[in-house]
Every structure is written in structure tokens, then in C-alpha cells.
Design a protein around this nucleic acid. Structure first.
Lengths: 127, 127
DNA sequence: TATCTGTTATAGCAATCTTATAACATTACA
DNA sequence: TGTAATGTTATAAGATTGCTATAACAGATA
């Protein structure tokens, strides 16, 4: 999988990496047991500092997406707590939905949007 | 409407205010034409600096939720661009959904979550 | 006139992000 | 065994951001 940094984005580098890796898992491009590049290797590849990559990996570990192993590096290992996942998701999309309501977006349109995103993730290879 | 700051949150004060006001509009507690407290008045009320409130109002103006008038203060005035609203919403919930997929949350469960949030917003007075 | 409004300017402090350099213990490999 | 690569930790420095403080200005209000 290709990881890259948008140096013009206002999102922190480590957040960009975190998001790309999470989307990589969701789209099946990275699977349970796969390993991520070493912090030094990835840092060199995308021309950022080792510690920034390390921070991304630490966040992913903290959030239950990878396990860090001195021998094998960072391995995808999903800590699935569905109930907690639902609660976090609720918080994360609530403000976005409030914004949408103000802009006249209706419930059915949000459902359509959700389906659309699911389709994109499920058929990623087509992109 | 009651605006307040969680001083222990890691969210910036001006973002907290922005979100509360957006949710206030979505839930019908503030309506088109209503005016928000003056920057100095609100700042005094919730014990933060005038400039922080001003920043929240500026962001809301930039995002098309209020118009700032030297005479009347900040007035709710929705700039409804539905197409753009949909695009922004898509970006805002995509990562949250990827995260959810990793945690085993299914499409129908997201739909249920969306409905739940809509219900909460529609029947806010019950809370 | 006196007061309140949004707006702008400048300055300072704390926290965060990113980079840089360095060292350490463990593991992998020739 | 020796060398290289790994994650981990420490320290420091520069840039940016969030927040506060103080001050001033022009326009509106009463």
C-alpha cells in the first residue's frame, strides 16, 4: 500500500498516516497479520522524520489497530470492541450531521452517503 | 441557549463554541435571524477571552452559518449550499466510517446510528 | 456625550508538531 | 561472532497554534 504525505495539508503528518492506514485496513489492502514498514524505512520513503512515523504507529496501537513488536515491527492486529466503536463513531459524526442538517441535508441523503462510502471501500480496487 | 466551555477538553475553546452553536441551529434552539451574544458579553459569561469568541464567530461566518453586523452583532444566517454540504460531510465521516468498519460495524448499524442522531436532534427538548 | 458594537494590532506564554541527533537493548543475518 | 536493523527513549530546537492581555479605532445606539 502506498502511504504519502500532503505537505500542504493542515492535518498533522502523523494524523494523515493514521487515517491512510485505517482506510487501508477498511478497504482490505492491509489485513490482520500484515506488517507495516519500519519507522525508519517509512520515514525515509516519504521524507519525514522517524519520530513522526513512530507517533502515528503509537496512536494506531493506542486505538487498537496494530501491535508493536520489536522483532516484526508494527503488525495489524485489530482490537474489536464494537460497542465502544459505535460510541466513538456517534461522537465523531454527530457534529458533521448537525452541520448537514443546517445545510438542508435530509436523513435519506445521509443514508445514501453512507451507502456510497461503503461501496467505495468495498470496491476499492476499482479506483 | 446555554453555551459553555469544558476547560478539561482537548478541543480548542473556539471549536467547542462553534460546535455547540451548529448543534443549536440543527436542533432548532437557535433560528435564522436570531442573534448571538456579543463577543465581549459571551466572553465574560463563560470566562474566556474576547478574541477566542471572536474566532469562533469568524469561523461560523466563514462556514456560512452567521453574518456579522456591527449594529446587530452575530446573526444566524444560513448559506445553504447543499451540494457542497454533501461533499464536506462525505470527507468528514469517511475516516470515522473506515474506523467503524475495522471494528466490525456494519452498514445497517451505521444507518441505525444516523437515525438515532437524527431523532436526538429532532426531539432535543426532551433532553 | 457616553456606551456598546465588531475589528484590528501587538505582545507574551504554553502546548503541539516536526525535526535533529544520539544512545540503548533486542533481534536477524552473514 | 560481528554487523545491521529493529523499537524505544531522551534531549533540544524551531515553527505554528491556541489563548490571553491590553489597547485603540470607527460606527451605531441611547
Amino acid at each position: 500500500m502506498i502511504l504519502s504525505i500532503d505537505f500542504n495539508s493542515d492535518e498533522a503528518f502523523y494524523i494523515q498516516l493514521r487515517n491512510q492506514i485505517i482506510i487501508g485496513i477498511a478497504t482490505g489492502r492491509i489485513r490482520e497479520g500484515d506488517s507495516l514498514p519500519s519507522v525508519r524505512q517509512l520515514a525515509d520513503n516519504i521524507s519525514i522524520n522517524m519520530h513522526t512515523v513512530n507517533k502515528a504507529y503509537s496512536v494506531l496501537k493506542q486505538e487498537g489497530f496494530v501491535k508493536l513488536d520489536r522483532r516484526k515491527g508494527a503488525i495489524i492486529s485489530l482490537d474489536v470492541d464494537k460497542q465502544r466503536g459505535l460510541e466513538e463513531m456517534k461522537e465523531e459524526i454527530a457534529v458533521a450531521m448537525a452541520k448537514g442538517i443546517c445545510k438542508g441535508i435530509r436523513r435519506e441523503e445521509v443514508h445514501r452517503l453512507v451507502d456510497e462510502i461503503y461501496e467505495v471501500f468495498a470496491n476499492w480496487e476499482e479506483n
